[in-house]
Simulated scan of single mutants.
Amino acid sequence: MSAIDDFLAMLAAERGAARNTLLAYGRDLHQAEGMVDGSLAQATPAQLARLGQGWSSLAPSTLARKISALRQFYGFLVDEGEREDDPTHALPRPATRRPLPKILSHAQVEALFARAEDEASGERPEAVRLLAMLELLYGSGLRATELVSLPLSAVPRDEPFLTVTGKGGQARLVPVSTRAKKALSRWLAVRPSDTKWLFPSRTSHLSRIRLYQMLKELAVRADLPPEKLSPHVLRHAFATHLLEGGADLRALQTLLGHADIATTQIYTHVDAARLVKLVNERHPLARARRSD
């Protein structure tokens, strides 16, 4: 096995890296090896500096991912005693700004659910399925992959929780609202019984692509811009609206399945308006000014 293969095997075994992460890192490292014209494991700082020049036209987020892969790779080699030095100081340091998540207003969410509930009122299986998925995306904050790959066994009979397998194969319990539980019960009553998947397709489970398509189509029928709706936007809305309602950031981290709370902190921007209002209404000086 090459040093790159050894590194990827370590990521999978010791860190539980997701398949998509392994594929992306593998592509980045093999591409870098082709650009240094030799063994990436033996590359010099000068060779890595040329990588930065070759990647100068990339988007900041893409460049940051490639540099992260290289830093972890060389850190692995140093830890394993394959190198005595870490040459990544020669790589550029892109200043990336994490984009703020797209969010839906409460009115937009209400319009979306009103349409979905109206369509499901006739108990047509496809409409009932869409309502159940919508309830879980917005009511429990599931990722698209987590939702479509749910096995039937993830739905408990009595407890208001789902057992979800998230990134890196990490399992967590996700609370299911009363609304979502009712929608799931309706779906279970009409769902095909000869499959292990909660949301089956013809041969396996529903695909992420089909889920995206269904949500875009629902947005059009609800008179909402389709580009504003996706599974991830509903997950963002779940987090945003919970924070607005006073949810604790640590609790939100657990609900979303974030390994690092820094990932969850991206949602704190949505609370800015509420905090300003709180200061204006509750601060002693604000009350004094009103008295004057």
Score class of each variant (00 low, 15 high):
residue 218 L to P: 10
residue 244 E to F: 02
residue 196 K to G: 07
residue 199 F to C: 04
residue 250 R to E: 08
residue 190 V to N: 09
residue 193 S to E: 12
residue 181 K to M: 13
residue 193 S to A: 15
residue 221 R to I: 06
residue 211 L to Q: 09
residue 208 R to M: 02
residue 208 R to P: 06
residue 190 V to D: 11
residue 227 E to T: 13
residue 183 A to F: 05
residue 238 F to K: 04
residue 249 L to H: 02
residue 243 L to G: 00
residue 222 A to H: 07
residue 229 L to C: 07
residue 204 S to Y: 01
residue 187 W to N: 13
residue 231 P to L: 03
residue 196 K to F: 01
residue 244 E to R: 10
residue 240 T to C: 01
residue 249 L to Y: 00
residue 220 V to S: 14
residue 232 H to P: 04
residue 198 L to N: 03
residue 178 T to L: 13
residue 223 D to N: 13
residue 230 S to H: 08
residue 228 K to V: 04
residue 184 L to P: 05
residue 178 T to V: 14
residue 237 A to I: 02
residue 214 M to V: 07
residue 225 P to L: 08
residue 218 L to E: 04
residue 194 D to I: 01
residue 228 K to N: 14
residue 227 E to I: 01
residue 220 V to H: 12
residue 247 A to I: 00
residue 220 V to N: 02
residue 236 H to A: 03
residue 243 L to R: 04
residue 188 L to M: 15
residue 208 R to N: 13
residue 196 K to Q: 14
residue 189 A to Q: 08
residue 212 Y to A: 07
residue 214 M to T: 06
residue 210 R to A: 12
residue 210 R to V: 13
residue 185 S to C: 07
residue 218 L to H: 08
residue 251 A to N: 00
residue 231 P to H: 05
residue 185 S to R: 14
residue 241 H to C: 08
residue 195 T to D: 12
residue 227 E to W: 02
residue 239 A to Y: 03
residue 224 L to Q: 11
residue 242 L to K: 01
residue 199 F to I: 07
residue 250 R to G: 02
residue 234 L to D: 12
residue 228 K to T: 10
residue 226 P to Y: 07
residue 193 S to H: 05
residue 236 H to R: 05
residue 203 T to C: 00
residue 205 H to Y: 11
residue 223 D to Q: 13
residue 208 R to D: 14
residue 204 S to T: 15
residue 223 D to E: 13
residue 189 A to G: 06
residue 245 G to K: 01
residue 189 A to M: 05
residue 193 S to V: 12
residue 227 E to V: 05
